[in-house]
């Protein structure tokens, strides 16, 4: 499993760069992760990220966009504005969560 060095510490990530241990994440690291993918985080981003992390901790899996809208009240349209093109993937990357598993 690859290890990335960010903000002077070692972070465990998978082949795509997603954190594998959510406890290595903090809100400062989120800034760095966001910069990696060309995003600048606003307060609204943090609201979304905090909900996603809380929900993932409770449910044991990264919330889907549908769940973010249905349970978190974050409209899909807005998530596309906050995390352009690939909101599910980008949100989980910045939030230090596993990429949402597409069910087959």
């Amino acid at each position: 499993m690859p290890v990335a060095t960010m903000q002077g510490r070692e972070i465990h990530v998978d082949e795509e760069g997603f954190l594998t241990d959510p406890t290595e994440w903090d809100e400062e690291l989120a800034k760095q992760l966001a910069t990696n993918i060309g995003l600048e985080l606003t307060d609204r981003h943090y609201e979304v990220i905090r909900f996603a992390r809380a929900d993932a901790a409770e449910q044991g899996e990264t919330p889907t966009l549908r769940r973010m809208q249905a349970t978190g009240g974050f409209p899909t349209k807005e998530l596309f504005q906050l995390f352009p093109k690939k909101p599910a993937k980008k949100l989980s990357y910045v939030a230090g969560l596993q990429k949402p598993v597409g069910c087959v």
Partner: peptide, 12 residues
């Protein structure tokens, strides 16, 4: 398609 490089430059 799964290198960290792609993640930053292509996938995301």
């Amino acid at each position: 398609s799964t290198s960290p490089r792609d993640l930053q430059e292509v996938s995301l």
